[in-house]
Design a protein around this nucleic acid. Structure first.
Lengths: 225, 225
DNA sequence: ACAAAAATGTGAGCTATATCACAAAATAGT
DNA sequence: ACTATTTTGTGATATAGCTCACATTTTTGT
């Protein structure tokens, strides 16, 4: 066990409250694994026996919509992935795929559950995360259904810059097809808007690199218009 | 305390594990209140000191979108409302409004928290509900963004009939404006589709009463087309 | 029971954006 | 370094559904 792993820390803390038998019965091994862009952490329709703790990196949560893939939200570390499967739903209702090099710690669902039982603080934290997730999806959903394309893309760019990278310069970890699925529009429209933004001097593009040069405009377009 | 209230039952069970001081410090009173259609249980932007337990009735969760109101999901009893405020978000990020006569039990947030601490089973149940909510929002979101109007409305009708009422005949608790906000389209389009469905003999309408007369067609349209 | 208010039905345009169809550019694989 | 593949840019066209506008019906309040 590495003590720089938050999950492990919680585990060892909890362990002190569990009997030795219980400890041995459950698999508390902490398997840290590295993943690259495109690797799948959770696959919709499959059965999971682990919760994945995203220690570093980024992932996308996506579901197969009635017509095409929809990217529901971008997950930033630290985050627990695959919780619904832990609480009764046997089958994963969504997929999670790495979009930027990630380190993930897996923990057996039953072990995870007993951590929750033994540690109310931890439960509390998980509930907080679940609530946040729901609120985030609310927000995204209102955004993607009400704004028009320019506003939606402005929104994504701002989210990347603020919530995800904390920097005006960053590298979009998604191609335009994915951006379309995140924003519910076509790849072509995404392309058009992006070049439009560049022409208007709002952003600078070179390959995947983006720099927001006129944040005010973006904010306006996002609130929009 | 009435013992037909599930929340009360949990409370008294939990109470036995708490010291008398703790019990007295916290308000465990169970105030059962009746509400009518249109009454507000939670108002976006305000601060809550209670969790609301919906014992009976229906409510809509809605948020102020960038342009217009969006109905995020329909809540059926039993359900706990206002959880995010319990876990750190001080301000309600959404509104909840009764749409069909409801009985609600309020419990002080701090009391609720100590219930969670004292009762891992209860925590577990809450986490389950939070996960379900998130998944439901995923599903709704994919639906409302990808299908076209006929499919979306077919979907809502099926949901009402199946999840909400468990009957082919029911009374829509929403007006067409609300239906539009639930489905992300205009009041007028909702009207058009509804009368279209009636003409095609898929549903029978009289005022708010709906009867699904051709479920197969609805399923087809929802999966659609 | 009656007036006032709210909710619904329906027509006629308008428009944002999807779709199709390529060309060009960038990336990856060997 | 060179193909093969994936990703991106951009025009032309079609269309679902929004908006506006008004008539009609239903519901509400007194």
């Amino acid at each position: 066990m590495k003590n720089d792993c938050k999950l492990c820390a919680i585990k060892s803390e909890a362990a002190s409250k569990l009997s030795t038998e219980e400890m041995e019965k459950l698999s508390f091994s902490c398997a840290l694994v590295k993943f690259r862009k495109g690797d799948s952490l959770i696959r919709q329709g499959t059965f999971s026996t682990n919760v994945a703790y995203l220690r570093s990196g980024l992932a996308k949560v996506h579901i197969a919509g009635p017509y095409h893939e929809q990217i529901v939200r971008i997950v930033k570390s630290p985050s627990y992935l695959g919780l619904p499967t832990t609480f009764g739903d046997k089958i994963n209702q969504y997929s999670v795929t790495v979009i930027d090099t990630a380190e993930v710690c897996f923990i057996d669902i039953n072990a995870f559950r007993s951590l929750l039982k033994a540690n109310p603080e931890f439960s509390y934290e998980i509930m907080l995360e679940l609530c946040r997730n729901e609120l985030e999806v609310f927000y995204r959903c209102a955004n993607r259904t009400q704004k028009q394309i320019r506003g939606k893309i402005a929104d994504v760019l701002l989210e990347m810059s603020e919530r995800i990278y904390g920097n005006e310069k960053f590298s979009i970890p998604l191609n335009q097809e994915d951006l379309g699925n995140l924003v519910d529009s076509s790849r072509e429209s995404v392309s058009r808007v992006l070049t439009e933004f560049e022409k208007d001097g709002i952003i600078k593009l070179s390959g995947k690199k983006v720099e927001i040069t006129n944040k005010k405009s973006l904010l306006l377009i996002s609130a929009n218009g």
